[in-house]
Simulated scan of single mutants.
Amino acid sequence: MALARNRRRDKGGDYWPGFVDALSTLLIAIMFLLTVFVVAQFVLSREITGKDEVLNRLNNQIAELTQLLALEKSGKQDLEDTLANLQSSLAQSESERTRLQSLLDSGSGAAAQSEAKINDLTGKLNDEQQVSARAMSQIELLNQQIAALRAQIAAVEQALQASEARDQSSQAKIADLGRRLNVALAQRVQELNRYRSDFFGRLREILSDRQNIRIVGDRFVFQSEVLFPSGGADLNPQGLDEMSKLAAALVDLAREIPPDINWVLRVDGHTDNVPLSGNGRYPDNWALSSARAISVVKFLISKGVPADRLAAAGFGEFQPIAPGDSPEARAQNRRIELKLTEK
């Protein structure tokens, strides 16, 4: 029996460490959550403080001006009290002077003493009048300062109101400009698309009987064999004829497009993926594709197409339109593309 009781006691004592570990884990989790909450509160308070910083400074300035105004009013009240005391003293002096004058009239024996007192009181009266005049000037100065402080407070309030009004007006103007810009851009795009359609429509009419010339999306594609000899960038006779037709269409189109539409015809040169031999005129397909595009642009310029409406680019073999290495795919990839875009 004793052995059983000892076993039960030992078995009951094993629960306590697990309970302590669970309680410690719970406390750590609660501390972690409290730490996250405190950090979040700190970040939010920093953001709110940053947004209200300007308003707090203006409120502080208004509070300072209000305190100065209160101090000036208090000083004014003190001076007014002083002035009242001086006026009371002046009245008493006048009363004393009147009394002495009556004594002087009634008794000639005290005339000299009364005259002396009168002179003394007259001097004191003059002094009091001067002090009173200075107090009045100080009161006037304080009134001017108070008026200036009130003007400053009114200016600060007007500045706040004007700032809020400007902010609202700016937001409205920005929204209106955005809408107007979107409408203008849409109109420009529509006009350019219309002239692009006219341009490609004319090219279709001019070059519709050519099997090696086709339209791919928004681009007009010439096969390189139509325009250039193999491995060269000088236009052959057939290429000169095709580019002359293209130049005539471009010259007519340039006259019709309004000058405020900033269009450009981009000439892109492409080759197949066959490397060039090192003994040729061009070291690689990059140079060959660029030279062919430049050759077309220069010829169009010589036929009267404005140079500022043309652009040349070479892409080598890195933008094929036909996958694979078959002769047919390579022939399609050797091409000159024309694309009418906006600058």
Rank of each mutant, 00 (worst) to 15 (best):
N193W: 10
D127A: 14
G123T: 13
R97F: 13
E140S: 13
A147T: 08
L149T: 05
Q144H: 08
R99M: 07
G178H: 00
N126R: 06
L104R: 15
Q158W: 03
E94P: 06
A91P: 09
L125V: 03
A133D: 00
E96T: 12
A155M: 11
N193L: 14
Q145K: 12
Q130L: 14
D105G: 05
N143K: 02
L149P: 05
S108R: 07
D127C: 10
R134G: 05
R134L: 14
I153W: 06
Q168V: 10
E140M: 13
A155I: 04
E94F: 04
Q130E: 07
E164R: 02
V156L: 13
G123D: 10
D176F: 00
L125T: 04
A148M: 08
E191I: 10
R150H: 10
L149V: 05
A135D: 08
A110C: 07
L160R: 15
Q158E: 12
G107A: 12
A91Q: 14
A133K: 01
N193A: 15
E96V: 09
S106V: 06
E157L: 10
L181A: 07
D167S: 14
G178S: 11
G123M: 12
D176K: 11
L160M: 15
L100H: 00
L177D: 05
R188K: 10
Q171E: 12
A147V: 02
L149H: 02
N193F: 07
Q101F: 08
S93E: 12
A133W: 02
Q145T: 03
I146G: 03
T98Q: 11
E191H: 05
S93H: 11
K124I: 13
N193K: 12
I118K: 04
R194D: 11
L103V: 01
R134V: 15
L142W: 00
D167R: 15
K124G: 09
S93V: 15
L160K: 15
I146P: 01
Q168W: 11
V189C: 07
L142F: 02
A148W: 02
Q161E: 07
L103A: 02
L192I: 10
D120L: 07
S106D: 12
D167Y: 07
A91T: 10
R166N: 14
Q145D: 08
Q161V: 09
A172E: 03
K124V: 14
N119L: 13
R99V: 00
V156G: 11
N193E: 11
R180L: 13
A165V: 00
L141N: 12
S93F: 06
L141R: 06
S163H: 05
E115Y: 07
I118N: 02
E96W: 06
E94W: 04
D176T: 00
S170Y: 04
R97C: 14
A111F: 11
S163R: 12
L100A: 01
D176I: 00
L160D: 04
E164I: 00
L160V: 15
Q190F: 00
L177S: 04
R150G: 09
K173D: 10
I153R: 15
V131Y: 03
N126K: 07
E96H: 06
S137C: 09
G178Q: 09
E164W: 01
Q187T: 11
A175E: 14
N182P: 04
N126I: 14
E164V: 02
L100R: 05
A110L: 10
G178K: 03
A133V: 00
N143Y: 02
R180I: 01
R194P: 06
L100T: 03
L177G: 01
D120I: 01
S170N: 12
A186V: 15
L185C: 09
Q168R: 09
D105W: 03
M136S: 08
